[in-house]
Simulated scan of single mutants.
Amino acid sequence: MNDNHKIQIPSGGSFRRPAGPYDLESRLPRYDVEVLAVDDHASHQVEIDSEIMGSVGNYTWIWKIVNNSSWPVFITLKKNGIPE
């Protein structure tokens, strides 16, 4: 995977960003996060949460990610399986 799509979150850091528009009826597009950490223990300490904000016909998917590990982690945001 190309490193241009990786975002670093430092230890104890957080990240919040709109992923993009979202259709509640079709449930598309599909957004996902890939976490790259020093080990599985650090990876499991990354909290990935999302919410949908907006009004009828104009919804936005929002990512909220917190790194609770003692190591920095890298994340890759994906839309329909393609790195953003």
Results as ranks from 00 to 15, higher is better:
M1H: 14
M1S: 02
N2V: 10
D3R: 13
D3G: 03
H5I: 03
K6M: 00
K6T: 05
I7D: 00
I7K: 12
Q8E: 06
I9L: 05
I9P: 08
P10Q: 13
P10D: 14
S11I: 03
G12A: 13
G13L: 12
G13Y: 03
S14E: 09
S14A: 14
F15C: 01
R16W: 04
R17G: 02
P18K: 07
A19P: 09
A19Q: 12
G20N: 12
P21T: 15
P21V: 11
P21W: 14
Y22A: 01
D23L: 11
D23I: 12
D23H: 08
E25I: 10
S26M: 11
R27C: 10
R27D: 00
R27E: 13
L28Y: 09
P29C: 08
P29L: 06
D32H: 13
V33L: 14
E34W: 09
E34F: 15
V35C: 03
L36H: 06
D40E: 05
D40S: 10
H41F: 11
A42I: 09
S43I: 08
S43W: 12
S43M: 13
S43C: 14
H44D: 15
Q45W: 10
V46T: 07
D49G: 04
D49M: 09
S50M: 15
S50K: 08
E51S: 05
E51R: 01
E51G: 15
I52C: 04
G54Q: 12
S55K: 02
V56T: 09
V56K: 00
V56N: 05
V56F: 12
N58Y: 14
N58Q: 14
N58D: 15
Y59A: 04
Y59S: 00
Y59V: 08
W61A: 05
K64V: 14
I65M: 01
N67G: 13
N67C: 14
N68W: 07
N68P: 02
N68G: 01
S69N: 01
W71C: 03
P72N: 05
P72L: 06
P72C: 11
P72E: 14
P72F: 08
V73C: 02
V73H: 00
V73K: 06
V73E: 00
F74S: 04
I75E: 06
K78T: 03
K79D: 01
K79P: 01
G81Y: 13
G81I: 12
I82V: 11
I82C: 09
P83F: 08
E84N: 02
E84P: 00
E84D: 09
